[in-house]
């Protein structure tokens, strides 16, 4: 089963750009396109109306469309956030699986990147499927799972 992640990038700015923002996860491409039309009406997004990217994400063996997905990710940065690198660990249908993936990532990298001097964030965020926010909010519903 696939779900569809909607991202946005500042596609015509002439300055140093951040990585794309995740805006949400959708059950069908048509729902992601509806969300794009909504976001295009909002301040900020109006200036970059063509910067939306839809990505498919495989959920593996699941019987039905989940109501919530959990994105596990890592981010490494310096104090000034001049240096900032983030990546995805995975997208999961249960909080338990997401926490397990975060723990595995920490275990595998305790002698590698986690020994670096960079600031580290290795966390999960929950996203309600097909939810459109009135304003951009990284967490969808604002909740942060404590992976500890």
């Amino acid at each position: 089963m696939y779900i569809y992640r909607l991202r946005h990038i500042y596609d015509n700015a002439d300055y140093d750009l951040p990585a794309p923002l995740t805006l949400g996860y959708f059950s069908e491409p048509s729902k992601a396109n509806e969300a794009i039309e909504h976001y295009r009406t909002l301040p900020g997004f109006q200036d970059y109306p063509n910067g939306f990217i839809i990505e498919e994400c495989a959920l593996g063996a699941v019987d039905s469309m989940p109501q919530v997905v959990y994105e596990a990710y890592f981010s490494f940065s310096d104090e000034e956030k001049i240096y900032d690198y983030s990546g995805e660990i995975g997208v999961y249908t249960s909080e338990q699986d997401a926490k397990k993936a975060v723990s595995n990532f920490k275990r595998m990298n305790r002698n590698n990147i986690m020994k670096s001097i960079l600031n580290q964030e290795i966390e999960c965020y929950s996203y309600e499927i097909n939810k459109q926010e009135g304003e951009w909010c990284k967490t969808g519903d604002g909740s942060v799972i404590d992976p500890s």
Binding site: A58, G60, M108, N112, I113
Partner: peptide, 14 residues
């Protein structure tokens, strides 16, 4: 020069 810069990620294939 960046000996702690390595990242390992597990990738699952169904």
């Amino acid at each position: 020069n960046s000996p702690n810069g390595f990242i390992i990620r597990q990738v699952l294939f169904q």
